[in-house]
Simulated assay, not measured.
Amino acid sequence: MGVLIFAPFVHFGQSISPPSWGWLLGIGIIHTGIAWVIIYSAYPQLSTPVIGMLSFIYPIVAAVIDWAIYDHPLGLSRDGGSGC
Rank of each mutant, 00 (worst) to 15 (best):
P49W: 00
L76W: 08
I34K: 01
H72M: 12
A35V: 08
A62Y: 14
L46I: 01
C84L: 15
S82Y: 09
W23V: 10
L74W: 06
A42H: 05
P44T: 01
P8K: 06
S55Q: 01
S55F: 00
P18H: 08
S17R: 11
I29D: 02
P73A: 05
V64M: 02
G83N: 11
S82Q: 15
A68T: 05
Q45P: 01
A7R: 14
L46S: 02
I51T: 04
I57S: 01
Y43T: 02
I51Y: 00
I39S: 01
P49G: 02
G81D: 09
I51P: 00
F9S: 13
G75F: 04
A62P: 05
I30Q: 02
G80L: 09
F56L: 00
G22Q: 07
S41K: 11
I51D: 00
I16Q: 10
M53R: 01
S41V: 06
S15T: 13
A68G: 00
G75E: 03
W23L: 14
S55H: 02
G75P: 02
W67I: 01
Y43P: 03
F56A: 02
A68H: 04
P18W: 13
I27Q: 08
Y43E: 04
I5D: 11
I5R: 10
R78I: 13
Y70N: 13
S41H: 07
S47N: 12
H31Q: 10
T48C: 05
G80P: 10
W21P: 06
I38W: 03
S17Y: 07
A35G: 06
F6L: 15
W67T: 01
P73R: 08
G33K: 07
Y43C: 03
Q45S: 14
G80I: 10
D79Q: 05
L54G: 05
C84D: 12
D71V: 06
Y70F: 15
C84N: 15
I16P: 08
T48L: 15
F6M: 14
I57E: 03
S17D: 12
I51V: 11
V3L: 15
S77I: 10
W23C: 07
V3F: 12
G22W: 06
G83S: 11
I5L: 15
W21F: 15
H11D: 15
G52Q: 03
G26N: 01
L54Y: 05
I57F: 02
V50P: 00
D66C: 10
D71R: 13
P73G: 06
G83Y: 13
A63G: 05
I16L: 14
W23F: 13
